[in-house]
Nucleic acid binder design. Structure first.
Length: 612
RNA sequence: GCGCCCGUAGCUCAGUUGGAUAGAGCAACGGAUUUCUAAUCCGUAGGUCACAGGUUCGAAUCCUGUCGGGCGUACCA
């Protein structure tokens, strides 16, 4: 089902092209006359407004109101009747707006159509599906996931879900940091402290064993202890360097320890992904170690193509238009003077793999805004090298930082990054307290389930609902508030609908049958009509959200929906409604629940709950 | 220095290639409740869209400058 907005845009644009066609080509040479149909800014103007007449009139150097009249006349003309199946007769207003009001029959027909399509709620699929690689999350192995990974992980996840819904082939790529010099000290620590100490204890040579592998609660602790030892013990640091070399050279023992560390860390990440409802699996992992063997080839080819040159001992590519502090050309360094490779090299190898092997039409990078320059330059080099086709899209989807209440990047009191696990634990704990207070009668199981859904949902929803490009201030109190655009408010709205349906069934009303059999729609109350109109616009919200990779467009829609439902709920009894009104109201309830569930659960990965 | 992003109500934030009288939530004030879950709804009040110019039928949005903040800027990722 095509969204009303798209149909209107297409039909009106066509007519505008016909009305202006030749004249337009003469004046500007531009093709196409977008109607710029937008939701009306004020309900008094109807449901949609056409904004495109005025810019067109400017191009044609004609009077916008006169032009609007011509367009409306053409839209209405008997031969080219473009609107009467959708809208009432269009009205011209202000300097040259065309206002459109939906016909009740269209609203009714769309509601019924959505109702019949339980899986997709009438959402259309892309005409030309693309293969889209989405690079997101990318935690550092050997350290726990912290708040710095939250946004990439969940925004990336949402983008994947949106694009998949639109019918694109989405390939998730988790570019984990599982390679590098830090593994030397970690391996060294495992070998020399964990295993040797344990062995000495086992053989009675030592009674003082501080750690064995099982005592390591997590990779964070391993990292911290190894780092501490590396700093204070010079000979330990020397041995760490030895392990780096061993690992690079493919030494079996080094590899075994490395694998141990990676798998320990991955199991921690997996746990976080599951709690967050993020659909990343092990098969999506293509980390630095995966690209490591390909790096010499990347550099060699850049050299062969004459793009990479030696500068100050390092191998560099100088894409055009980038300058350093002194205004001199800024390089992308692909190999350090000591021979080591860098992030840029890995990213270039990844682009080759994604275009060459994965056949990507588009690659989306979900990382914070600070990496903007890095990607700009890497993209430039990849294009210079001919590793991406001109039509291949490389998109950097950026986001701002998560700040504490003081407006500075969120840290613990001791200045460390806040662990994602602890953040989620606290959110769930706080949600639990609220459940306990509001609904003490529920069973332990239900309380746990609700606290989990609300707590995790609140963290995610708060992030999604902020414009991704700006920083936002993290506040448990605000995200867990029952009022306002929050997860609990949305979940509550859903739970209320479900409650109506439960009550109805208890009363012996055959809710599903009544909905399935409802052929005519009766929208009499303003809040009913308002809700109905909003329900048929879900597709618009999804496509604008996906088009700009902005989850907040979707949350804004969902919040509007929940508010409109609440008004309807207040004004219109459902179960006690007269028999001519009840089927429609049951249908509105059902579609509200399905839409909230689809948005929250299918697209944002946030759990809905039947009661709270 | 240069580049990128940002500055909107007391607070937290929306604002869709420039569109009609700039919107929400919180906080404040006033109303609605023998409830289909009030974890709700309705209303009132609150603004020099940082500042100054410019572009045009029309600017929070585009351009120039100023002030304030964040980030980046040769071997981290």
């Amino acid at each position: 089902m095509q969204s009303v907005l798209n149909i209107l845009e297409a039909r009106i644009s066509e007519v505008m092209g016909e009305v202006s066609g030749q004249a337009l080509r003469q004046c500007s040479g531009q093709a196409g006359c977008p109607a710029l149909v937008r939701p009306a800014t004020d309900a008094r103007f109807g449901d949609y407004q056409v904004n495109g007449v005025m810019p067109l009139a400017k191009q044609l150097k004609t009077n916008p109101r006169k032009l609007a009249e011509q367009i409306v006349a053409k839209l209405n003309s008997a031969t080219a009747d473009k609107l009467s199946d959708i809208c009432e007769s269009p009205e011209i207003a202000g300097p040259g707006f065309i206002n459109l009001r939906l016909k009740p029959e269209l609203i009714a027909a769309n509601l019924l159509q959505i109702s019949k399509d339980a899986d997709r709620l009438g959402l259309e699929k892309a005409e030309k599906p693309k293969t889209v690689v989405v690079d997101f999350s990318g935690p550092n192995i050997a350290k726990q996931m912290h708040v710095g990974h939250l946004r990439s992980t969940i925004i990336g996840d949402c983008i994947c879900r949106l694009l998949e819904l639109q019918g694109h082939k989405v390939i998730r790529q988790n570019h984990i940091g599982d390679w590098g010099t830090q593994f030397g000290m970690l391996i060294n620590y495992l070998v020399n402290v964990v295993y040797i100490d344990a062995a000495m204890k086992a053989t009675g040579l030592s009674t003082k064993t501080e750690y064995d592998l099982s005592s390591l609660r997590d990779t964070e602790e391993l990292y911290r202890k190894a780092q501490e030892r590396n700093k204070t013990d010079k000979s330990f640091a020397d041995v760490s360097r030895y392990w780096v070399v061993q690992l690079q050279n493919g030494d079996e023992q080094a590899k075994r320890y490395w694998e141990k560390i990676v798998s320990l860390s991955l199991s921690e990440s997996k746990e976080i992904y599951e709690r967050l409802g993020v659909l990343l699996t092990e098969s999506d992992i293509r980390g630095e170690s995966f690209y490591n063997p390909k790096l010499p080839g990347v550099v060699a080819e850049l050299k062969k193509k004459g793009l990479a040159v030696e500068s100050e001992g390092a191998v560099c590519v100088f894409p055009e238009g980038f300058k350093d502090k002194e205004g001199k050309p800024l390089p992308v360094i692909v190999q350090k003077s000591d021979g080591a490779y860098l992030y840029a090299t890995t990213d270039l190898a990844a682009i080759r793999y994604r275009v060459g092997e994965l056949k990507a039409d588009k690659i989306i990078y979900v990382t914070d805004a600070r990496q903007g320059l890095h990607f700009e330059m890497v993209f430039a080099v990849a294009r210079m090298a001919g590793w991406v086709k001109p039509q291949t899209e490389l998109v950097h989807v950026t986001f701002g930082s998560v700040l504490g209440e003081d407006g500075k990047p969120l840290k613990t009191r001791s200045g460390e990054n806040v662990k994602l696990k602890e953040l989620l634990d606290e959110a769930v704990e706080r949600a639990r307290k609220v459940v306990e207070e509001k609904n003490p009668g529920l069973s332990e199981d239900e309380k746990k389930k609700i606290a989990n859904a609300v707590g995790i949902g609140a963290v995610k929803y708060a992030d999604y609902t902020n414009n991704r490009t700006s920083d936002y201030i993290f506040s448990f109190d605000k995200m867990l508030a029952m009022e306002g655009n929050t997860a609990p408010y949305m979940q509550y709205a859903y739970a209320r609908v479900r409650s109506i349906q439960r009550k109805g069934r208890d009363k012996g009303i055959e809710v599903d049958k009544e909905i399935a059999q409802s052929q005519s729609i009766s929208l009499t109350e303003p809040s009913e009509l308002d809700l109905a109109k909003h329900l048929i616009r879900y597709g618009e919200a999804v496509s604008s959200s996906a088009g700009d990779y902005r989850p907040n467009y979707l949350t804004a829609y969902l919040y509007d929906l929940a508010q409109k439902f609440s008004s309807f709920y207040n004004d219109c009894p459902v179960l006690d409604a007269s028999s001519d009104k009840r089927p429609t109201r049951l249908l509105l309830c059902d579609l509200t629940a399905k839409t909230i569930e689809h948005g929250l659960h299918n697209l944002l990965g946030i759990e809905v709950i039947e009661q709270m």
